[in-house]
């Protein structure tokens, strides 16, 4: 749907309680790439996503191709952007298949409900997220890594050109996190989706990103290729720490804050 068109954010201001400005940002994301959004706690990463999705009030423009997303009611933006919040609430007794299916249910016709086609799409997305074998498991029995893949499947099930994910690997161990990023990278490069991910782990961001957007103090402090952003001292300034970056193996980076005593 939105594939093949840019997501352009122009002079976007996001407001919290009492019209307090949380963020002011410009950004331009291209489809077919994996875009990582980084920044210290409270800098405004989640506010950016919530503003784009219309959960928080905004001014300024959000465009996908010729579609002015900012003029759409929040529930209609779902046709263009699939948003995955940090923690997905789940019904413990529900099966994985029903959980993924429920993502499509919210926009199913009032009369008629979900069809065979919806079920097929749900299974397809589970398979694409390498979670097909989990279909009949109960949600309560999933590990952190499995849950992350199921959550991704439910987001894919919305059938949009853009994925907007808030810390999708927060509950994953290192191996599951790598697996997830391999998947996200494939969705961007092979399926041509636009993927925007808020990420806490700077090593993962440095390793997997096509572009990095650094947010600090409610502004975009730097954006560009990982080499450029990490090459400048913008990241160290944003985090207020001495960072050491090392490529431990090809395309596998570690970024740590250096102890200062």
């Amino acid at each position: 749907m939105g594939a093949g068109t840019n997501l352009v954010i122009y002079n976007l201001r996001v407001f919290g309680d009492g019209r307090k400005e949380l963020l002011c940002a410009d950004a331009r994301f291209e489809p077919g790439q994996l875009h990582l959004v980084i920044g210290p706690n409270g800098a405004g990463k989640t506010s950016l996503l919530r503003g784009v999705m219309g959960v928080l009030p905004t001014s300024g423009e959000i465009n996908i191709g010729n579609t002015a997303i900012h003029t759409l009611a929040p529930h209609r933006r779902r046709d263009f952007l699939a948003y995955q919040p940090q923690a997905l609430p789940r019904v413990e007794a529900q099966t994985v298949e029903d959980f993924v299916l429920s993502a499509r249910g919210a926009r199913s016709p009032w009369i008629g409900g979900l069809s065979i086609r919806d079920r097929e799409r749900a299974m397809h997305c589970l398979t694409r997220a390498r979670a097909g074998q989990l279909a009949q498991r109960r949600m309560a029995t999933l590990s952190g890594g499995e849950l992350a893949r199921v959550a991704l499947a439910s987001t894919l099930a919305l059938d949009t050109g853009w994925l907007i994910l808030d810390e999708p690997v927060a509950a994953c161990d290192v191996a599951a996190a790598r697996e997830m990023y391999r998947l996200l990278s494939s969705l961007a490069h092979d399926d041509g989706l636009g993927v925007v991910v808020v990420e806490h782990d700077l090593g993962l961001a440095r390793s997997w990103a096509d572009t990095i957007t650094l947010i600090a103090l409610g502004h975009v402090a730097a954006r560009g290729a990982p080499t450029d952003v990490f090459g400048s001292n913008a990241v160290e300034e944003a985090y207020g720490a001495n960072l050491k970056t090392a490529e431990l193996a090809p395309n596998s980076w570690a970024v740590v804050a250096v102890n200062q005593r």
Partner: peptide
């Protein structure tokens, strides 16, 4: 079902 997961999820799912 979507609304039971809170406002943010309900909006994200298009409710």
């Amino acid at each position: 079902d979507a609304m039971a997961g809170g406002e943010e999820l309900a909006l994200a799912r298009g409710v």
